[in-house]
Structure formats: C-alpha cells, structure tokens
Simulated assay, not measured.
Amino acid sequence: MNIIVLNGRGHQSRLLRIPRYLPVALLSLLLVVPVLLGAGTYYAMYHWGEPVLDQRMTARWQDELEAQRGTLSEINQRAEEELRAFTLRLADMQARVLRLDALGERLVDVAGIHSDEFDFSTPAAVGGPELPDERSVAYTAPTFAEALTDLAVTLDRREQQLSILERLMDSKRLAERTELSGRPITMGWLSSRFGQRTDPFSGRLTTHRGVDFAAKEGSDVVATGGGVVTYAGQRWGYGNLIEINHGNGFATRYAHIKDIHVTNGDIVRAGDVIATVGSTGRSTGPHVHYEVLKNGQQVNPAPYIARARR
C-alpha cells in the first residue's frame, strides 16, 4: 500500500510505502486488547477479590424477606380483627338506634305530643347549596369510620330529642300537678260568690275577693293544687290563714280555718289535707274563704273550681 503526502504549497510530494499486513494487525490489536482486558479483570475479581453477592448476604436478604412476610401477616390478621370489631360495634349502634326510635315513638304517643314535632321514623331533613367546584367530584363510598361517625351523630340527635321530650313531659306532669282545680273542701256548699255583695257585718256593698264554702267545723280543708306553703298562721281579717305558691304566678289562700296542718316551706300536692274548717277571724260561722291570686291579684276562682268537672 502506497501513501502520497503533499506539502502545503502543492509543489512537492512524497511517497510512503506501508506493508500490507499493517492495517490487519492494527485492527486485530484494537479488537483483541479490550477482550483481553475484560477477561483479565473478570478473572482477577472472581478469583482474588471478594464477590459482590456472597451466600451470607443472600441468606440475610432471605431472612429479612421472611421477617417482612411475618409482619405483613400480623398486620393483615390485626386488620381483620379490627374489621370484625367495627362490624360488631356498627351492628350494636344500629340496634341502639332502633330501640331509641321505638322508645321515642312510644313516648310521643304517651305524652300526647304531635308526631310532626318528634318524628323518629324518618331521617332528619338536611340541605344546603352545592358549591360549583364540588359538582365534578366523583362519588366515593363511605368508609367504616365514616359510617360509624354518621351513626354516632344519629345517636346524639336521638338522645337530644329524647332529652327534650323528657323535659316536655316533666313540664307537662308538673303543670298537671300544680294546676288548680276543684274545691278546697271535701264536703260542703258554696255560700258566697266572688264579686259584689252586702257585707254581713256592716251591711254595706263591698267587693268579695274570694268564694266561701260552708262546711262542718273540723272537716278537712284540701289543697287545690301542688305547690309550696309560703304562709301558715294568723292574719288580720282572715283569722288562721294558709297561702300556697303554685308557680307561674299563681297562689291560693285558705282563710278562717281552725287547725293548721302545714308549716312554711312544706311541699303539698293537690288533694292533701292542709287544715280543718273553722270560724276564726272575721267570720259568721264555719266555712273556708278561698282565694286565687294571679301575679299578686285576686281573680275569680270559679273557672279553676269548674276544672274538676271536665
């Protein structure tokens, strides 16, 4: 092989002769040398150096994998146990809701309250505007925790309803116990009505601020409603007097009585015997002067007496 070399000016040239085997030798050298270097490096690392993955490391990795499998199995078992516990708790709470609903409906019937105010058979009405950015959100099923939370909220709501219902029933029972009705005597007759009359002592026209019930001396005088005794003693014009506060601005007075069976601060119920019929004070004979006061003013007792006949 010949190579012609020209100088920069192109006036002179030189001929180089290259042996024919030289290119083949160079190519062989470029291929053989890397192969020999790679083989030598592998041989040196395999025989003289420490292996990258020896048996001890492989065994250690296998032990770690087994430990991770055991941990994962324990986690799965614990998750299944918790799921069963959640399921039992959910079933128990649902049973409680059913019992509360049944009890609430029964109490509403017993209390005579309109069912629209305490409807335990339908879910509570809820609502609210939909936000624009929520319309594109896809529906996702509630988790167990969310289901338990919703059920706990339902239980709280039912307990609040029952608490309100209990207070209403207590108020109704209290009102029934303190409501004025009937006569202050067990036997006797109405001898003087409320309003204008001729005074039995002066003969002048006066206002009678109560009603009189004539009865046998020593017979029972009863409270016409439940309340607290606020006065039990003598008072001018009334003779022996008992005054009972019934709440809500109502009070009753029982005058001209003989024997007083209660003291200040005593709690009485409707129908309790509080005294005996007498003729103390400004009186012409055995009777009970009965007054009903509303916010401190005497009112006609006739409507309250008539309640006992309804």
Rank of each mutant, 00 (worst) to 15 (best):
L53C: 06
L53H: 10
D54A: 13
D54P: 10
Q55H: 11
Q55S: 13
Q55N: 08
R56A: 12
M57Q: 12
M57G: 13
M57E: 11
A59G: 15
A59N: 15
A59W: 14
A59Y: 11
R60C: 01
R60D: 11
W61R: 04
Q62H: 08
Q62T: 14
D63H: 15
D63G: 15
E64S: 12
E64A: 12
E64H: 09
E64P: 07
E64Y: 07
L65K: 07
L65W: 06
L65G: 04
E66N: 13
E66D: 15
E66I: 11
A67K: 07
A67D: 13
Q68P: 05
G70K: 14
G70C: 08
G70A: 14
L72K: 08
L72M: 12
S73G: 13
S73Q: 15
S73C: 14
E74D: 08
E74W: 09
I75Q: 11
N76R: 09
N76I: 10
Q77T: 15
Q77I: 11
R78I: 10
A79H: 13
A79T: 15
A79Q: 14
A79S: 14
E80F: 14
E80R: 15
E80H: 13
E80I: 13
E81M: 04
E81K: 09
E82D: 14
L83E: 15
L83D: 10
R84G: 06
R84V: 08
R84Y: 02
A85P: 12
F86R: 14
F86Q: 15
F86E: 15
F86M: 13
T87H: 07
L88K: 06
R89H: 05
R89V: 11
R89S: 05
R89F: 05
L90N: 06
L90C: 09
A91C: 02
A91F: 03
A91Y: 03
A91I: 00
A91D: 06
M93H: 10
M93N: 13
Q94I: 00
Q94Y: 00
A95T: 03
A95I: 02
A95N: 07
R96D: 00
R96S: 01
V97Y: 04
V97G: 06
V97N: 07
V97L: 01
V97K: 01
L98C: 08
R99V: 05
R99Q: 09
R99E: 06
L100G: 00
L100N: 05
D101S: 12
D101H: 12
A102D: 05
A102S: 04
A102V: 07
L103M: 09
L103C: 10
L103R: 11
E105L: 03
E105R: 01
E105V: 05
E105S: 03
R106Y: 06
R106K: 04
R106E: 00
L107V: 03
V108P: 00
D109K: 03
V110T: 14
A111C: 02
A111M: 01
A111D: 01
G112W: 00
G112K: 03
G112M: 01
I113K: 03
H114P: 02
H114R: 02
H114L: 01
H114K: 04
H114S: 00
S115Y: 06
S115I: 04
S115T: 03
S115M: 02
D116Y: 00
D116R: 07
E117S: 04
E117V: 10
E117P: 02
F118V: 02
F118D: 11
F118I: 06
D119Y: 00
D119L: 03
D119G: 00
F120N: 05
S121R: 06
S121I: 05
S121P: 10
P123I: 08
A124M: 07
A124D: 10
V126E: 09
